[in-house]
């Protein structure tokens, strides 16, 4: 089972993602924004990061860039979970180093399937 960092400013959304992941047996750590997520990622190693884009302080794209700059997060999968579906923003995320892009609202089964794919 994987150690996963979930970053979202919405408590409800974090709760939904955490519920889905813990139900599948994963261990989840939550962070409400990019800065706190970066601080947590520096202290602990994760197998996967799931982040929102629109967040106060550091947004999701900047977070992906900052995580990729960390040696311990250079090769871990980072999924962007957001309501944004624009091609330009997706391209930004891809350039920043995101592994995948999931558009909200997510289906729990689809999320778990995607996790399995990227973790394998």
């Amino acid at each position: 089972m994987a150690q996963i960092l979930v970053v979202d400013d919405s408590t409800t959304m974090r709760q939904m993602v955490t519920f889905t992941l813990t139900s599948a047996g994963h261990e989840v750590v939550e962070a409400p924004d990019g800065n706190k997520a970066l601080a947590v990622a520096k202290q602990r190693k994760f197998d996967l990061v799931i982040t929102d884009v629109n967040m106060p302080g550091m947004n999701g794209i900047d977070l992906v860039q900052s995580l990729r700059a960390l040696p311990e997060c250079k090769f871990i999968p980072i999924l962007v979970l957001t309501t944004e579906a624009g091609a330009e923003l997706k391209q930004k995320g891809r350039s920043a180093g995101a592994t995948g892009w999931i558009v909200k609202p997510f289906n729990p089964e689809v999320l778990l399937d995607t996790l399995k794919k990227v973790l394998d």
Partner: peptide, 24 residues
């Protein structure tokens, strides 16, 4: 930051049941 485009600017969230996944 406000949503740049997509669901938030198209008058509300979409009412589909599944998330759209794209792996790079």
């Amino acid at each position: 930051s406000r949503p740049a485009e997509g669901a938030k600017e198209s008058g509300g969230p979409r009412r589909d049941d599944g998330s759209k996944v794209e792996l790079f």
